[in-house]
Design a protein around this nucleic acid. Structure first.
Lengths: 365, 365
DNA sequence: TTGAAAGCGCTAACAT
DNA sequence: ATGTTAGCGCTTTCAA
């Protein structure tokens, strides 16, 4: 029972530079380390007085348990690896943000690894994560395109976000591009538009094809076809939005709505329409995709667009990963619904900011 | 010397699910754990044959040393915390990317923590990092504005990137906004422009004021003043670019160049100029700030702009942190030079892509 | 050249 | 109710 001296003095003395161990806490509280551990973790049965004394000493010292020692013992690190393949592209960022959010709530920390699409670097990072004993791994990417699995027979669960593993056993979480395309065109038809064109990115992108398929399905259901008789595949750029508009107008001058595969394309289209003397939305209504706010809001007029809910994709991926860590593991593709964000390119602006309408989404793919 | 059975069989049997410890390696190699450790780390003196046998077994097993155990012993985790306060804004991302890059090369892993500017969350993350025994911390933010230090007397070094700690003892790494402003205006004067206006963000931003100060200094050196007789402070938006252009043109219709405080403002200015019947760059040359490529390149015409080298800011912060971890610690503000990226808004487009000119920067602030 | 043993900080049995 | 001890996986003395 030798309480050497007042704990606070010592703290001041040592300038809080030294890191206290549970032994220090135990000594100063006049108990054994075992007792101190129980007191701090609320386990075992202790006299309330003892418990509170230990806790108080720990607080005064600013004691933080060494997570390394805890993990070494428990086998759990409460840490996951976030492996992104595309240098935090515009799409992987919100996904990562959502994942970090969902994990942070659960006191799980995130190791950030950016492989820049370099397989060698990816292997290095993977080794590093496993060496650090992460409890699980999220693989994020910008494109929904498939990719080879990050490894097989790994000792920890892996979830793919915004990308799809070629191995059907793996779990992938993606936005529902098809549902997004449906929502966009349903909105346009509900406004009474009948000559609806579609300008989008390169055909080789799954996302472009799926959005077009969703749009097509709704058109077919209404007995319509794409204005201009085809999907105008091109590039994900404003420039293509402008060029594509010219091409579309040539084929179908009476077009009264355009569904754009991205907000950038949408901006280009808006500029081209204005410069061709057409009014948006009066003559031609416009819907974009991405809800890239800085783009959509700077558009003239501000662009109604499909928000792929990337943050939610990340959150779902994180939750699925946590579930897998706890034991449950189901593979397949999990799809997150898109949501339509209404702005002035399709509807008269309202006094109170933007409006949101739920998009079509499937619970499981 | 009982090599139980062929290691590979065992690997296959156990499906690589079990994680091998150095004990497993030692057993299968027929040596003690101490010897195995030496063999794997290239320390001590061992018979070459022994060393290679151990290494081979480890490889066959796919053995990865448990970093937790290593760190517990060594007191070093080769881990740093990256605390960002603004949800990976457009500015903190490249900084983080650069930091991650510089650290990754040195085999240091990054804990990603996004406090969203919430001080409570920030404290939680800080505790978590310290508990996980990070070797150091980088605090990143989007604004160059000062902020209270993340804590005092912390047991690990801290470096601030893209933000400045109020405590002068701390080390902060920032882009050289003033040098950037200088570079922009020097470029314009070198083109023979004399009536140079400046449209920028809100005056309360240090960055805006510093860029303006740099610009002003160069103008004064050339015996000039800002066209319109003042800096036009406003907002960081395209809309302000358009409005500000109108205001500037009213005061000074003969303006022949505009330095814009951001690329978004620059885009707005370009649109407004074009719609007022002026040609860029023939009538009015334009320089932006940020080199936000998707903005600058989509501008019509593409925008010459000042690149604040955010990636370099992150890399420098990371290197400074590593140095501080190794022992050296100097406080103060470290400044990273900007660079001018030439595009068609000031110069005739060249066949081979963009051109780059070095900006003015001070080595130390 | 190799082995045995101590110990990093912590928790969980098992004693007392 | 509290103390003692073993051990997580590894590295590093110190002995052999």
């Amino acid at each position: 029972m030798d309480r050497a001296q007042d704990p606070l003095d010592e703290v001041a003395n040592e300038q809080a530079k030294r890191r206290w161990t549970i032994v220090d806490v135990a000594q100063r509280a006049g108990v054994s380390v075992g007792t101190a551990s129980k007191a701090l973790n609320g386990r075992g049965s202790l006299r309330p007085e003892t418990r509170s004394r230990v806790v108080r000493v720990a607080q005064e010292l600013g004691f933080e348990p060494n997570a390394l020692a805890q993990s070494l013992l428990s086998g759990r690190t409460f840490t996951v690896g976030l492996l992104t393949t595309d240098s935090f592209g515009r799409f992987s960022i919100p996904v990562m943000l959502g994942a970090e959010e969902a994990l942070g709530e659960g006191k799980v920390s995130v190791f950030l690894c950016d492989s820049r699409g370099d397989p060698e670097r990816e292997r290095r990072y993977l080794r590093m994560m496993l060496s650090r004993r992460v409890d699980g791994i999220i693989v994020a990417a910008r494109r929904v395109e498939s990719r080879p699995p990050v490894g097989k027979g790994l000792p920890v669960p892996v979830v793919y976000a915004m990308t799809r593993s070629e191995d059907r056993q793996d779990l992938s979480v993606l936005p529902d591009d098809e549902g997004g395309g449906q929502a966009a065109v349903e909105h346009l038809t509900s406004l009474g538009r009948r000559r609806i064109g579609h300008l989008t990115g390169p055909e080789r992108f799954e996302a472009a094809r799926r959005r077009a398929a969703g749009a097509q399905a709704v058109l077919a259901g209404a007995g319509l076809e794409f204005a201009g008789g085809q999907v105008f595949y091109g590039a994900w750029s404003e420039a293509w939005g402008r060029e594509g508009t010219a091409a579309l107008l040539e084929r179908e001058p009476e077009v009264d709505a355009i569904f754009c595969g991205s907000d950038q394309i949408g901006r280009g289209v808006a500029d081209a329409l204005r410069e061709s003397g057409r009014r948006v939305p009066d003559d031609v209504a416009l819907v974009g995709f991405d809800n890239w706010e800085v783009m959509a809001e700077a558009c003239r007029p501000p662009l109604t667009t499909v928000d792929p809910n990337l943050g939610e994709v990340g959150r779902v991926a994180a939750r699925e990963l946590l579930a897998a860590i706890e034991g449950g593991t189901a593979g397949g593709v999990r799809t997150v619904a898109c949501r339509l964000v209404l702005r002035a390119s399709t509807v008269a602006p309202e006094p109170a900011g933007e409006r949101v309408a739920a998009g079509k989404g499937r619970a499981r793919g």
